[in-house]
């Protein structure tokens, strides 16, 4: 069974670029939506908070698979044209995880001590500068660890895109399974699992780097990892 490993590897590795693209695209959209919706959740305006709350609860409350199928099958029936599968996938990944990310942002901003807000007011910084120069740099340090978990969830969710025939790792595995011998199934799936593990480790390593930078920026030694 090991002689087919090179074939399995090369076939599955060809699925890595779409998986990575979906992950990176999903993460980019997640970051933007988390920031916008998260800051909206701590807005002074009730209407802004309400709109954001509806977005967050809606996307956290309905299943990701349903959201994916809805964009893939229902939207075309309603508006008459179909988004390309990878695009639909990135959209759903971003919208879904952005809703979870918004809660992370809200929690981190609210965890910044009140005295920091008051100090910024005393220095007569504008509301925008208060947020940008005082509150956010501190909040970001708190946000990064939970965002690492969220991004790994997102990476795992990209496997769902195989259900709407995006040519990513899992989909390619499914194409391979019926064509190889019985003993090869385990090899195929193990390779898939290892690919995801490596990608998850890469995300973790990248985020650790960011954590250290963000902590250094506000003059703190990071809680996790080794101080340099």
């Amino acid at each position: 069974m090991l002689d087919s490993l090179p074939l399995i590897l090369s076939f599955l590795m060809a699925g890595v670029p779409p998986t990575v693209l979906a992950t990176v695209g999903g993460i980019a959209l997640t970051v933007v939506l988390s920031a916008v919706a998260g800051l909206a959740l701590v807005s002074r305006h009730r209407a802004v908070r309400a709109v954001s709350r509806v977005y967050v609860e809606f996307f956290r409350g309905t299943s990701e698979v349903v959201q994916l199928f809805w964009i893939f099958f229902v939207l075309p029936a309603l508006v008459g044209y179909q988004i390309i599968p990878l695009g639909a996938g990135i959209l759903v990944l971003g919208l879904n995880h952005g809703a979870y990310g918004a809660e992370i942002v809200r929690g981190a901003v609210r965890a910044v001590p009140r005295a920091q807000h008051e100090g910024a007011v005393a220095l007569s910084l504008s509301p925008w500068d208060r947020m940008r120069r005082v509150v956010l740099p501190q909040a970001v340090v708190e946000m990064l660890p939970p965002f690492t978990n969220l991004f790994i969830q997102l990476l795992k969710s990209t496997a769902l895109l195989s259900l709407v025939v995006v040519d990513e790792v899992v989909r390619r595995g499914q194409l391979l399974v019926p064509n190889l011998g019985v003993g090869e199934k385990l090899t195929i799936y193990l390779v898939e699992l290892v690919i995801y593990l490596v990608l998850a480790l890469l995300i973790t390593a990248g985020m650790r780097l960011l954590e250290r930078r963000a902590a250094a920026r506000v003059g703190r030694v990071p809680a996790t990892g080794v101080a340099t």
Binding site: K156, A159, V170, K185, Y189, E192, L193, Y196, L197, A200
Partner: peptide, 21 residues
Amino acid sequence: QFWRSTPLLVQAYVIYQVLPD
């Protein structure tokens, strides 16, 4: 550590398709 970094979908395939072997 390994199992929570990898997709549930693939794990379900392993249990449903590989265990019968």
